[in-house]
Structure formats: structure tokens, C-alpha cells
Simulated assay, not measured.
Amino acid sequence: MALTPAIRDAFTPTGKLRASINLGNPILAHADDAQGAQGVSVDLAREFAALLGAELELIVFDTAGKSVEAVAAEQADIGFFAIDPVRGADIAFTAAYVLIEGFYLVKQDSPITSNAQVDIAQNRIVVGKGSAYDLYLTRELKQATIVRAPSSPTVVDTFLKERAEVAAGVKQQLESDAARAGGLRLLDQRFMVIQQAMGLPKSRNADAATFLSDFVEQMKSCGFVAAALKRHGIKGASVAGPVAYSIAD
């Protein structure tokens, strides 16, 4: 779709493109003391701003929930989120550009050895508040209790402090925290695949949503997303294909 003045205006109501960036997911973005926020989502925001011919303003948050709220409240014009039906009430999503695996973590001596043993009444599962894992497990778990850590990066510390039975999160984050803390292990099967997409407020016009979707497809097909993952040293995430994926498998 061609860029029109109406589409540009839909993305820049304040004169700038305001991009909501979540630092709580290290696959997508991280803080750099010298250069500020860096990562795949930041690279995509810069590329999109250049396409619009607009100045970019990064609005940085420490959790996915806060990042989502900023776009839903139109305090930001675009954002980078896991696709979820709850978030879809206020945000128009593109197709996914990156797929990330969600895993469970337990103590080394835990009797839990498979995903099927997680959802039982005596288990407490720690998740990052407002994360894709929180939203998904809130819908799917029938017996286990969810304990919400302040953010995804604090899940393992909360898990240990609360002496909970299970922690849930991004595989790479859990692996890193397990190596740091010691005495922990991941279960050997993912419990969900997260579709990371771009989104804009649903109140913006339909042409803007189509334009953003086209942008994401172009960034995947031309190799931009794959190159960004490689440039930032991201392992364990894959570029999404041109069709939608199920949020869990």
C-alpha cells in the first residue's frame, strides 16, 4: 500500500512517531547505557519512522503490560507485543514477525518432569504481570494458582522468594536466570509459542493498519528481521512466516 498523507497523519498525530518499547522481553529490546534502548523492536521502529519520513520518539517501559496500555490509551502510536485476544480489544495487530517459545522452570529436585504435571491444585506458577504468559495461562490453567511477579525479568527471583513450584517465561530469560541462580532446570517441552507482532491503536484508520501489516511482511521477506536478530545476538527466536500462527501448540 502506498504511503498517503492520511496514513502518515494516522501514525503521527503529535508530529512524531511514538513507539512503545518493552524492555521486559530481552528477545525484543534491552537497555544500553551508552545508546539507550536497543534491539529488534527498536530497529523496526526506526525503519518504520524512516519510511514515514517522521521523527522517532521511543517511549520505554519495563513491562509488556505498561507498553500495551500506552498504545491502547493512544499515548504511543505503535508498539511491539505478543498477540493476545485480550490486548486485541484495543490494539490492531499485524501478523507476527518473530516467534518465541515459552517454557516452565522448576527446582532441580522438583518431582515435576513434564508440562502435564504443572496444572494441579497444589502448584503455584510465577509469571510476569501482564505478560503474554500471564494472559495465556490465566485462560488455560484450571487448577494451579498464578503468582504475578512485577515484571518478566523478576519472575525467577520471585519464584525463589515465594518458594513456588513453577516459573513460566521466555526460554532464554529462564535459561539465563537458571544459570545465575543454580539448582534450577527447564522442563523439556514448550507450553506455548508467542507471536510477537506490531500493533497500533484500533481507533486509527483501517488503511494505517493495512500499511503497518504490509511493512511487517516486507521486513520479514527482505531479511531485515533475520538480520536484526543476528546483529543483536538473539538465539532461540525465529522469524515468523507469512501466515498467522496459533498462539499455542
Rank of each mutant, 00 (worst) to 15 (best):
M1F: 09
L3P: 12
T4D: 10
P5A: 05
A6R: 06
I7V: 15
R8Q: 15
G15L: 08
A19I: 01
N22P: 03
N22Q: 00
N22V: 01
L23S: 05
G24S: 03
P26L: 05
I27T: 15
L28R: 04
L28C: 02
A29Y: 01
Q35N: 15
G36L: 09
A37H: 09
G39P: 05
G39M: 03
S41T: 15
S41V: 13
V42Y: 09
D43F: 07
L44H: 10
A45H: 08
A49L: 04
E55L: 03
E57S: 11
L58G: 11
F61K: 01
F61D: 09
D62T: 11
K66Y: 10
K66W: 10
S67Y: 01
V68Q: 13
V68R: 02
A72N: 01
A73Y: 09
I78T: 12
A82K: 02
I83T: 10
D84I: 03
A89H: 06
A92R: 07
A92K: 06
T94S: 14
A95H: 07
A96V: 02
V98W: 04
L99A: 10
I100W: 04
I100P: 00
I100Q: 13
F103D: 12
P111Y: 12
I112F: 10
I112G: 08
T113C: 05
S114W: 07
A116M: 03
Q117Y: 07
I120V: 15
A121V: 07
N123S: 09
V126D: 04
V127S: 12
G128C: 04
G128W: 06
G128S: 03
G128D: 03
G130E: 09
S131F: 11
Y133V: 12
Y133N: 14
L135W: 03
T138I: 00
L141F: 14
K142G: 09
T145M: 00
I146Q: 02
R148I: 13
P150L: 01
S151T: 14
V155T: 15
D157L: 06
T158Q: 13
F159D: 12
L160Q: 11
L160Y: 11
A164Y: 07
A167P: 07
A168P: 11
Q172G: 13
Q173C: 01
Q173A: 14
L174R: 05
S176W: 05
D177T: 02
A179F: 03
R180H: 09
A181V: 07
R185M: 03
Q189L: 10
Q189D: 13
F191C: 06
V193W: 11
Q195A: 15
M198Q: 11
P201I: 02
P201R: 02
K202Y: 03
R204P: 00
D207T: 05
D207W: 00
D207C: 01
D207N: 08
D207Y: 01
F211Y: 15
F211M: 06
V216M: 01
Q218N: 12
M219N: 08
F224D: 04
A226L: 02
L229F: 05
K230E: 12
K230M: 00
G233A: 10
A237F: 04
A240Q: 04
G241A: 04
P242A: 12
Y245L: 01
S246E: 13
D249S: 09
